[in-house]
Simulated scan of single mutants.
Amino acid sequence: MLNNSLYIIFAFCLAAGLGAMIMPKILFISQKKKLFDLPNSRKVHDTPIPRLGGLSFFPEIIITCGFIVGLRFLLGLSIDSAGPQEATMCKYLMLIVGMTILYLIGICDDLVGLSYKPKFLAQLIAASFLAASGTWLNTLNGLFGIYDIPAYVGMPITIFLVIYITNAINLIDGIDGLASGLCCIALGILTIINVYHQQYYFALLGASTFGVIVPFWVYNVFGNAKHGHKIFMGDTGSLTLGLVLGFLAINMSQNMTGRPNDVNHTMIIVFSTLIVPVFDVVRVVFRRVINKKNPFLPDKNHFHHKLLRTGMRARWVMITILLFSGFFIIINTLMTKNININIIVVIDIAVWVLFHCIVTHFGNKHKREKEAKEKAATMS
């Protein structure tokens, strides 16, 4: 196990090193060719910023995973992993096919712009490949009173969930460091869980993806836009990360061990890593439907937009949401051993609603104070 864990750490370092080398090159090309994300009324930034940071994610993940697996085979050290390796390779290959499709559609969107229809179709195809490979949800382990799920039900649910998670990551990518930070937290936890369950091939994928994001996060959060050092991941990056997270989350939620308690605990922890983006999409889409708006069109009603309306700076909004995500992971992990999974979900929803009520209150208070100051300034 220690030997495999060292290779997982090496994969993280290799991916991070590749990202650190390639990201400046992407910045240079973006500046040279003027490939910018232009500011508008819906966006937080006010200067043109390159949006091709995600261009490097998919190739770096493939290079890292392929090199580590190939190196071990050349050395006669095949990765010891629970479960048949043929099934694992099938899942990997179908994931690569799906990632390639989303990578190409993401590049098109970042360069020339696409409507939501071709992007949705690409996500549907990619998610279908994952389900066909054997990565489909076969148990809810008592959630809503449901245990075993047959394939004809589990596979469509899986396709829906993968598309849902992919879009959740894409939609929450609204301020510096938020989507990539949430993905780092989720990928870190999922990598650890996979190592614990001796699913080293999937831990390798998680560690490689985690490593790819770290240098991007540094440029995205700390880069100076005026000096041309800031970059966005764009749809190419968010779609890639969303698909990988969906794949790892569904795979870890499958009942492969025959030990229901392990599956129960794992499902709760995996679910916890994705609570913020997943819950945010539900609230935003529900609000759009209530207001009779197209649920696929963007607006400024996401979680980070609400926090910005309280007067918080973007950096602190990012930190607050990352801490909130960490809070859910820690609390749910502590509750999982003694509390029923349905009760945990109810508690999570209650905490989420309460926090939004508090944020809404302070948002409205800040708005009233701002209007009062503007009125006083006008009168004077």
Rank of each mutant, 00 (worst) to 15 (best):
R72L: 09
L178W: 09
L74R: 09
A377E: 15
K33W: 13
N340E: 11
H197E: 01
S380D: 13
R313D: 15
R42I: 13
T135V: 12
I165Q: 06
D262M: 12
V112K: 04
R288M: 14
R72H: 06
L143D: 06
V195H: 00
I101F: 05
H366F: 14
G19M: 08
F73Q: 08
N3D: 04
T135A: 09
N301A: 14
G17K: 06
M21S: 09
F120A: 07
A179I: 04
K119S: 07
L354W: 02
F247R: 00
P150H: 12
V218P: 02
C65H: 01
R42W: 14
I343G: 01
L55R: 01
G113I: 08
L93S: 11
N294S: 15
N342Q: 00
N4R: 06
L190P: 00
M155K: 01
N3A: 10
E60T: 11
I341H: 06
P39L: 08
Y7R: 04
I321Y: 12
T191E: 01
N340W: 05
F210S: 04
A203L: 05
M21E: 06
I169N: 02
F67T: 11
T139S: 12
N291Q: 15
L161K: 00
L14E: 09
V214I: 13
G237W: 02
G70A: 13
N338V: 11
H366C: 12
I275D: 03
E86L: 11
S128H: 04
F324E: 02
